[in-house]
Design a protein around this nucleic acid. Structure first.
Length: 463
RNA sequence: GUCCCCAUCGUCUAGCCUGGCCCAGGACACCUGCCUUUCACGCAGGCGACGGGGGUUCAAAUCCCCCUGGGGACGCCA
């Protein structure tokens, strides 16, 4: 196979959404799998809606996801000369023509076609008029009137359109700027793109583009149209489904690898495997096992995957990951301390914000962590407090204050007094945690240390 | 309206091309139990699908046709 070059071509009119991210990932994987190149193109020809801040945000999201690109991004807004060169070429070769039909006229043609039970389209009025270049005239592509345009789609298989369905599209606007389909073809060709992977919504543009390639005498690239992502209810993805930008998932505390893994798995599979490293993905990826039907987005499964990645992270890595979230929540804590705490909590949260939440009682000062009323009532009874006071003395006497020694104190206290663990566990838990849930007590004590353990017991005794 | 695409558990999917190994496998979610001082995690089990109808065949989730349903596109947006 010739060199594989894929691309991702976002238009900077908003943040990078998960749908776009997914096609970007597929394109990236295809290139990496073949040892080819992955390039970026910013489709900013819509000057009204394009903004630099969105380009910056999209690139930042790409980086966060780990999708490296191989050359400086190309900006369509800076290539008018190139587009014009080819539009002029088509004009010179009689494959395009000037048209002076007004918007109202064209709209009337569409209405008429629709009334006749046809697909609404421009009727070719100026096609053979031989109009000269003039202010306010657009350039239209002289599309074939008969025949069929067919291609073998990488994900959907053979797709065919009757050329009769298509009209003479505008390739240069009256203000002189090129339109999307023209610009895309010129760019994909000039950037030597071999495989175009893009959203399903472009299927209808493909025959038009193929015609342009043919008219320009260029080789047609491979096309693959990835189905879109729907909400879990199979309806169009919207805000309330969690149709968010990549950036929002970053803010929620998702790991980029988990998001990538989830998105890839949504519409692509390799047998029963659910979790893939990036290297595995690169090695296994093929458009052959891309699904041709739309996929529903399931936030629960995404979270589950994220939890798996958190569990598999090293303590140091996870600590570095949560650090900004802890800070955001107002906690000043060193990376060392976080690294020590994280193993107790890593499998108790599904995202980094949840992780900070789980650690909250420990992060809070001894004078500030809160007691849950219900738990206090249940565990800090007179009897419970008595046991607490007794154990406090033994903890205080400990020289080495570790999870082993504290556990030993508890175990001995239980057996010496003929008690059940249930008699001392809950009160101590409420004393240290403020609630009934949480990690193993000796582990907690070892981390917060003797002073803080005693301080917390003292506070509990006052409840 | 016209054209294009799609159709397996609630959701993501395996199987479909190369019919029999599938009274359909895995994962998430859900339910039950186990583990545990608690909450999670984990483990074990359970619930749960080939959209409908016709063909072809000894045999169809798999091949063919029709229907239905869903999505997309029909711009001087991308």
């Amino acid at each position: 196979m010739a060199k594989v070059v894929t691309r991702f071509a976002p238009s900077p009119t908003g943040h990078l959404h998960i749908g776009g991210a997914r096609t970007a990932i597929f394109s990236w994987l295809l290139a990496r799998h073949h040892g080819g190149e992955f390039v970026l193109r910013i489709e900013d020809t819509d000057r009204e809606r394009s903004e630099q801040q969105y380009t910056d945000a999209i690139l930042a999201s790409m980086e966060w996801l780990g999708l490296s690109w191989d050359a400086e991004p190309v900006y369509q807004s800076q290539r008018d000369d190139l587009y014009n060169k080819y539009i002029d070429q088509l004009l010179a070769e009689g494959k395009a023509y000037y048209c002076d039909c007004s918007a109202e006229e064209v709209e009337a043609m569409r209405e008429e076609a629709r009334a006749n039970g046809k697909k609404p389209k421009y009727n070719g009025k100026c096609r053979e008029l031989g109009l000269e270049k003039a202010e306010g005239r657009v350039v239209r592509f002289k599309a074939p009137l008969t025949g069929r345009t067919v291609w073998k789609d990488l994900v959907k298989g053979s797709i065919a359109f009757d050329n009769e369905e298509l009209d003479d599209m505008i390739i240069r606007r009256s203000d002189g700027s090129p339109t999307y389909n023209l610009a895309v073809v010129v760019d994909d060709h000039s950037q030597e793109i071999s495989h175009v992977l893009r959203g399903d919504d472009h299927v209808n543009n493909t025959p038009k583009q193929i015609m342009l390639y043919t008219a320009l005498g260029w080789e047609v690239p491979e096309f693959g149209h990835v189905p879109m992502i729907l909400g879990s209810d199979r309806k169009k993805l919207s805000k309330r489904h969690g149709a968010k930008s990549v950036m929002e998932y970053e803010k929620m505390g998702l790991l980029p690898q988990a998001l990538v893994n989830y998105l890839v798995r949504l519409g692509w599979s390799h047998g029963d495997q659910e979790i893939f490293t990036l290297d595995e993905l690169i090695e296994l990826f093929s458009t052959d096992n891309l699904s041709s039907s739309a996929a529903g987005f399931d936030p629960d499964k995404l979270l589950w995957l994220n939890a798996q990645y958190m569990k598999d992270s090293s303590d140091a890595d996870l600590a570095a990951l949560v650090a900004p979230f802890a800070k955001e929540a107002g906690f000043e804590i060193s990376l060392e301390e976080l690294t020590a705490m994280v193993p107790l909590f890593k499998d108790r949260a599904k995202d980094l914000i949840g992780l900070v939440d789980a650690m909250r009682f420990m992060l809070l000062a001894d004078s500030e962590y809160e007691f849950e009323e219900k738990a206090v009532k249940k565990a800090l009874t007179e009897e419970g407090k008595q046991h607490l006071a007794n154990m406090r003395e033994q903890f205080a006497a400990l020289e080495a204050f570790t999870k082993d020694t504290t556990h030993e104190v508890m175990a001995n206290y239980v057996s010496d007094n003929g008690l059940k663990f249930k008699a001392v566990g809950p009160p101590l838990r409420v004393a240290l945690v403020g609630a009934m849930g949480g990690p193993n007590l000796p582990d907690v004590m070892e981390i917060i240390g003797k002073e803080r353990t005693l301080a917390r017991i003292d506070r509990a005794l006052e409840q």
